[in-house]
Amino acid sequence: MIEFEEAGFSYGTRTVLRDVTLSLAPGAFHFLVAPSGAGKTTLLRLCWLDLAPTEGRVRHFGRDIGRRDRSAIASLRRAVGVVQHDCHLIEHLSLAENVALPLSVSGIAPEERADDVAALLAWVELGHRARALPGQLSGGERRRAALARALILSPELVLADEPTGGVDRTTGLGVMTLLLELSRMGKTVLVATHDTDLAESVPGAVVLRLDEGRVWVDEAVA
């Protein structure tokens, strides 16, 4: 699915990732655990080609996509659902329109998939807020809205960056429950978190630890 082969990344002279070799197991639930600033977001951005490795290579769905192949990059992003920490909702579009945005981008008329949008909003328990603007939502609701948007095109891989960060424990657990449900549906999930306890609380999850730019794979949590 996503394979890192001795990949590294540097912001100028500051090396964030080095010699990373890993492969995301299809259908598995992965945690990427590291303290803030260790490079978790950078590794996720390499997964959805927001960044290209400065060393080694990252293969996406068996392909080596060049940085200049903008069409292939866009196509890859439509195949990967991404939930970023700050959600990136478009503030002047309603919640339903934000969720339907990937449909428009893919050339699918949103009205054709209005039922899917409604079902997803109901799944993340935001069905009653479909017409609300993102500015009217709480942090947890924004996170769930971003998750619904990430799933509208039924991606095989879902990436979530600190999905429980910045929200209260109950809200965070609600988002994690949704992600676990996705994993049970057979999606591959990668969650970046600084919360070691959270990572160790999910049975069967693959835990990737990021330390000084290198990634270590823990045994699956029993």
């Binding site: 959805w48 903008r70 069409s71 992003r77 990136h88 909702l89 478009i90 981008v105 893919s106």
Partner: peptide, 16 residues
């Protein structure tokens, strides 16, 4: 810039 970043995140091509 924020809207463009979001559009790219969800796979929009430059033409769109």
């Amino acid at each position: 810039a924020a809207a463009i970043r979001t559009l790219r995140l969800v796979g929009a091509e430059d033409g769109f």
